[in-house]
Each structure stands twice: as structure tokens, then as C-alpha cells.
Amino acid sequence: MGEEMRLHIAEDGADPERVAALTGYLRDELRQLDVAEVRALPGSEPPPGSRAFDAVAVGGLLVTLGRSAEGLRSVVGAIRAWLSRGDGVRRTVRLELGGDVLELSEASAADQQRLIELFVRRHEPTGDSDGR
């Protein structure tokens, strides 16, 4: 099985129900890609007196990647495309993989592309005998 990438989704001014809906939309898009699994990120116990949203972190996804760098590239590309459809509302997706963090939001397209390339290169498999 491949590496696990954690995603944390936020939107300025969004309530937990809106963030949960956005997370569901992104989860559905990511499930169409060549990844092993996409599921809700397990949450922690809610603080006393707060409203619980099951036992998952609102806005959190856990993506289990395949073995190729293309899987990671496709996930990051899908996230970038999803962010661009924000209709002027500031959305942020924080990616965590292997101790590295990449936060995508309002950076220019060129800056996002540069950061994505660095992030993906850092996590490309090395030493594959089949050339991938």
C-alpha cells in the first residue's frame, strides 16, 4: 500500500456543515483518480458542550496514494482545479505527506505550480526497477 496524505479543507466564513459539504465534493473528485483509497480523516473527541459531527475531523480527508508519482501529481492537480472553482471565496487545502506540508490557497498559478513541483519531486519514488 502507498503513502497516506492528509488533507485539511477550509473556506473563509464557512460553518462546519458547509466545510463538510465541500469535503464531500472534493472526496468524490479524488475517488475518480488512480488512488488506493479516500476517506474521512478520523477526528478526536469534541470539547465538552460542542456539537459533534460524528467521529471525523470536519474538513479532513485521508488519501492513500498508489506507488507512482503520477498518483500524487493527479491528486494535487485535482485539488488545484477544485480550488480554482471557489467562486471568489477563499478556500485553503493543507496537504501533509511524509512530514512535509503544502498549503494551497490564493497563491498565483505560477507560484502554486512551482510549489507543487517541489512537493511532488520530494515524494517521487526512487529506485524503482520498472522505471516509474
Score class of each variant (00 low, 15 high):
M1E: 12
G2L: 01
E3S: 00
E4N: 10
E4C: 12
E4H: 04
R6H: 08
E11F: 08
G13R: 07
A14R: 04
P16K: 05
E17R: 14
E17C: 09
V19Y: 04
A20I: 08
A21G: 09
A21T: 14
L22A: 11
T23W: 03
G24F: 07
Y25Q: 13
L26V: 05
R27K: 15
E37D: 15
A40H: 09
A40G: 15
L41W: 11
G43P: 02
G43T: 09
E45D: 09
E45W: 05
P46Q: 05
P46L: 05
P48T: 07
R51N: 12
A52K: 13
A52R: 12
A52N: 06
F53K: 06
A55F: 07
A55I: 12
V56W: 13
A57V: 11
A57C: 10
V58H: 07
G59L: 12
L61C: 10
L62P: 03
V63M: 09
V63K: 02
T64C: 00
T64V: 06
L65E: 03
G66Y: 01
G66Q: 02
G66H: 00
S68V: 04
S68P: 03
A69H: 07
E70T: 11
E70C: 10
G71D: 01
G71S: 06
L72S: 00
L72C: 04
R73N: 06
S74Y: 07
S74A: 10
S74T: 12
V75Y: 00
V75M: 06
V76N: 03
V76H: 02
V76T: 01
G77Q: 12
I79D: 02
I79G: 00
I79S: 03
W82I: 09
L83T: 01
L83R: 03
R85K: 15
D87P: 01
G88Q: 05
R90G: 11
T92C: 11
V93F: 08
R94S: 14
R94D: 09
L95C: 15
E96Y: 07
L97N: 01
D100N: 14
D100L: 15
L102T: 03
E103Y: 10
E106K: 10
E106A: 13
A107V: 08
A109L: 04
A109T: 02
A109Y: 00
A110R: 01
Q113A: 15
Q113C: 06
R114T: 01
L115S: 05
L115Y: 01
I116Y: 02
R121A: 15
R121W: 03
H123G: 02
P125G: 08
T126S: 12
G127F: 12
D128Q: 12
D130H: 07
D130R: 07
R132N: 14
